[in-house]
Amino acid sequence: EEKRQVKQVAKEKLLEQSPNSKVQVRRVQKQGNTIRVELELRTNGKKENYTVEVERQGNTWTVKRITRT
């Protein structure tokens, strides 16, 4: 359940930055209360990979860091 929520948060964050792209989740890793989500962003056939680190704060998820990989 929490992985599902985190995927959603990570996707939304990337789509905010580039709204007309397609996002696909590649991998989800958990480390303590930080969850790392690896995503693939496609814009006009151009692929970019991103890693989004999401942290739990109380009962909400906040995006800590977005890295292009």
Rank of each mutant, 00 (worst) to 15 (best):
N33W: 04
K30D: 10
E40N: 03
K3R: 12
S21Y: 05
E55D: 04
V37R: 00
V25F: 06
K7W: 15
T60R: 13
N20S: 11
R36I: 15
T60G: 13
L14C: 06
V6F: 02
S21R: 02
K11R: 13
L15W: 05
Q29K: 08
E53W: 13
K30P: 09
T62F: 14
V23T: 02
R42W: 15
S18L: 14
G32F: 05
K64H: 04
V63Y: 01
R42G: 03
K64E: 03
T60Y: 10
R4G: 06
E40V: 14
S21P: 02
V63I: 07
W61D: 03
V23Y: 01
L15T: 04
K47P: 07
Q29C: 09
R36L: 15
T60L: 09
N59K: 09
R56D: 02
T62M: 12
G32T: 02
V25D: 00
K46Q: 10
Q17T: 12
R26Y: 05
V54D: 00
N20L: 06
K11Y: 05
K11D: 01
Y50G: 00
V52T: 00
Q29S: 15
V37A: 01
E40K: 04
I35P: 00
I66Y: 03
I35W: 15
G32N: 05
V6R: 02
K7T: 15
I66N: 00
V6C: 06
Q24M: 13
Q31S: 13
V23Q: 01
N49D: 07
Q31P: 01
N33E: 08
V54A: 02
E16Y: 02
R27F: 11
E2F: 03
R26A: 04
R36Y: 15
V23C: 04
R26D: 01
K46H: 12
E1H: 08
A10L: 08
T69Q: 11
I35G: 02
V63R: 00
K22H: 13
V25W: 02
G45L: 05
V37P: 00
V37Y: 02
K47F: 12
E55C: 05
E48N: 04
N59E: 12
T62Y: 15
E12S: 10
Q8K: 14
K64T: 14
T69S: 10
E12D: 14
R68L: 13
N44R: 10
E1P: 05
E12I: 09
Y50K: 00
E40T: 12
N20M: 07
K47T: 13
K7F: 09
Q31F: 12
V6P: 09
Q17G: 10
N44S: 10
P19H: 04
I66S: 01
N33G: 08
W61L: 12
N33P: 07
K7N: 07
V23M: 04
E55L: 07
V23N: 00
T34R: 09
E38A: 08
W61A: 06
N33Y: 06
K47H: 13
E38V: 10
Q57G: 04
V6E: 02
Q5S: 11
Q24T: 14
V52D: 00
G32M: 03
L39I: 11
L41D: 01
T62I: 15
G45E: 07
V37Q: 00
L41T: 06
R68I: 10
Q57E: 13
R4C: 08
L14K: 03
E12N: 07
E55V: 13
V6N: 02
V25E: 01
K7Y: 06
K64V: 14
T34L: 13
V54I: 13
Q5T: 12
L41V: 14
I66R: 00
N49V: 13
R27N: 09
K3T: 15
T60D: 13
G58R: 03
E48H: 06
T69Y: 07
G32K: 04
A10I: 14
Q31E: 13
R56K: 14
Q17V: 14
R42K: 08
V28L: 10
K47A: 10
N49Y: 15
Q8Y: 02
E2P: 05
L15P: 01
R68E: 05
E16K: 06
I35C: 05
E40C: 06
K3Q: 14
T34S: 08
K3Y: 15
V9N: 02
T51D: 04
G58N: 09
V37F: 02
Q17I: 15
N44E: 10
E16T: 05
T60F: 11
T51S: 07
N59H: 08
V63K: 00
G45C: 05
W61F: 08
R56H: 06
I35K: 00
T69H: 15
V25I: 11
N44I: 07
Q8F: 02
L39E: 00
W61G: 02
I35E: 01
S18A: 13
K46T: 11
K47N: 07
L41I: 11
E1K: 11
S21A: 13
T67Q: 09
Q57K: 11
V63G: 00
V54W: 04
K13E: 04
N20Y: 03
N44H: 10
K13D: 01
V9K: 07
K3V: 15
E53M: 09
K30S: 14
R65C: 08
I66M: 05
V9M: 10
Q8T: 08
K47V: 13
E55Y: 08
A10D: 01
S18P: 02
I35M: 12
T62R: 12
L39W: 01
L14V: 08
K30V: 14
R4W: 09
L39A: 07
K22N: 10
G45R: 05
V9F: 09
I35H: 10
L41Q: 03
Q17R: 12
T43H: 13
S21T: 05
E55G: 04
V9C: 06
R56Q: 07
P19Y: 01
V54C: 06
K7G: 15
T51H: 05
T67N: 05
K46Y: 12
K46P: 02
V28E: 01
Q57W: 08
Q31T: 14
T34H: 08
E48I: 10
E55Q: 09
R56M: 09
N59V: 04
E1R: 04
P19M: 03
T43C: 05
E12C: 07
Q5C: 08
N44Q: 06
N49S: 11
E40S: 08
N33T: 10
L41H: 02
V63P: 05
E48Q: 10
E40R: 06
N20G: 13
Q8I: 11
K30I: 15
R65G: 06
R36V: 14
T62C: 07
E53C: 06
T51K: 04
L15F: 04
L41W: 02
N49G: 11
E40F: 07
E16M: 06
Q5W: 06
E38G: 04
E16P: 02
K64C: 05
T67S: 08
K30M: 15
I66W: 03
N20C: 07
Q31L: 14
V9E: 02
W61V: 12
R4V: 07
R42P: 00
V54N: 00
T62D: 06
R36M: 14
R68Q: 10
G45T: 07
L39H: 00
K47L: 14
K22Q: 13
E38L: 13
Q5I: 10
E38I: 13
S18E: 10
I66E: 00
S18H: 15
E38M: 14
T43M: 11
K47D: 03
T69L: 11
A10C: 07
Q17H: 13
R4F: 10
E55W: 10
K22P: 03
V54Y: 05
V52K: 00
A10K: 02
N44P: 06
R42M: 13
E2K: 03
N20F: 04
K64S: 10
T62E: 13
W61E: 02
K7E: 15
R36K: 15
S18M: 13
V63E: 01
V9R: 05
S18G: 03
T43V: 12
Y50W: 14
K13M: 09
K47G: 04
E2D: 12
N59W: 05
N20Q: 10
T51P: 00
G58H: 05
T43A: 08
T60H: 14
V37C: 02
N33S: 12
L14G: 01
Q24E: 10
R27W: 12
T43E: 10
I35T: 10
N49M: 13
R27E: 04
T43Y: 11
T67H: 09
E40W: 09
W61T: 06
N44A: 10
E55F: 11
N44G: 09
R27A: 09
Q57R: 10
I66K: 01
R68Y: 04
E55N: 04
Q24C: 08
S21D: 02
R68G: 04
Y50Q: 00
G32C: 04
K3N: 14
R42H: 13
T51M: 13
S21H: 03
G32H: 04
E12Y: 02
I35R: 01
E12L: 05
V52W: 01
K13C: 09
T67M: 11
L41C: 06
V25L: 03
E16H: 05
R65M: 13
Q5A: 11
A10H: 02
A10V: 10
E53D: 09
E38S: 10
I35V: 09
R42T: 15
R36F: 15
G32P: 02
E38T: 10
V28N: 01
W61C: 06
K13Y: 12
L41K: 03
A10F: 02
Q31G: 05
Q5N: 08
K64F: 06
Q8W: 01
V28H: 02
N59C: 05
L39Q: 00
V52F: 02
V63N: 00
Q24Y: 14
E48G: 03
E48D: 06
Q5R: 13
R4E: 14
E40I: 12
R27K: 11
S21I: 04
T51W: 13
K22Y: 11
Q8M: 07
E2G: 06
A10S: 04
S21W: 04
R65S: 15
T51G: 01
T62G: 08
V23D: 01
E2Q: 11
